[in-house]
Computed example of a mutant assay.
Amino acid sequence: MIKHIVMWKLKDYAEGNDKQFNANEIKIRLESLKDKISEIGKIEVGINNNPANSYDVVLYSEFESYEDLDIYQKHPSHMEVAAFVGTVKDDRTCVDYEA
């Protein structure tokens, strides 16, 4: 099993919205991918409630293989969400590992 974890620090204001609105929008859009991309085994998106930390949104997802992860990452629905996230983020970090 492959675990794919991504965290984003968001801009205070982007795409005409504040950080909280954009965090919620990322959550909605990413979680909707479960119904569109069959390779996703599990997906959770959390919005940080701890103001002392620098990252605002975290994605936790699971895939059966690196091939499934690759299909997910190249899927048009994921690419659409990624394009939006790219316009509202300041920073991104990612970890993929086998469990």
Rank of each mutant, 00 (worst) to 15 (best):
K74M: 07
K89Y: 07
V45G: 06
G46D: 04
H78V: 08
G41Y: 00
M79Q: 15
A52T: 10
S54A: 11
V58A: 15
A83Y: 08
V45A: 12
N53C: 09
H4K: 03
G41C: 11
L10E: 08
V81G: 04
K74F: 01
G86S: 02
Y72S: 05
V6N: 03
E80D: 15
P51V: 06
Q73N: 12
F63H: 06
A23E: 03
S77A: 15
M7I: 13
N24K: 15
D90I: 01
N53K: 09
V57R: 03
E31I: 04
N22H: 06
L10M: 10
D35H: 10
K9L: 07
Y55A: 03
V95E: 00
N22S: 06
E64Y: 06
E64N: 14
D70Y: 08
D56R: 01
G86M: 08
E25Y: 04
R29Y: 05
E44C: 02
E64K: 07
V58Q: 09
Q20I: 14
K74Y: 07
L10I: 05
I43K: 08
I47P: 01
T87C: 12
D90N: 13
F21H: 08
K89H: 09
A83E: 15
S32W: 01
V95L: 14
Q20F: 12
S77P: 00
D56S: 08
E44P: 00
M79E: 15
K11C: 04
D96W: 02
R29P: 06
A99K: 06
I71G: 02
I37F: 09
K36I: 09
K27S: 13
K11V: 03
E80Q: 15
N22F: 06
L10Q: 11
E80M: 10
A23W: 04
L59N: 10
Y66Q: 11
Y97S: 02
K89G: 01
S32Q: 14
G86Q: 02
I28D: 04
D96I: 00
M79G: 01
K42W: 05
E15W: 00
E44L: 08
V57D: 07
Q73A: 13
C94R: 13
V95W: 05
D35K: 11
P51N: 06
N22I: 11
G86A: 04
G16S: 07
S38M: 10
N24D: 11
A52F: 06
Y55K: 10
Y66V: 10
L59V: 12
I28R: 08
G41W: 00
Y72A: 00
A83G: 13
H4W: 03
E62G: 08
E25K: 15
K42Q: 13
G16F: 05
H78N: 13
E80H: 13
I43Y: 04
P76L: 11
T93H: 03
N50Y: 06
L10F: 02
K34N: 06
Y66I: 09
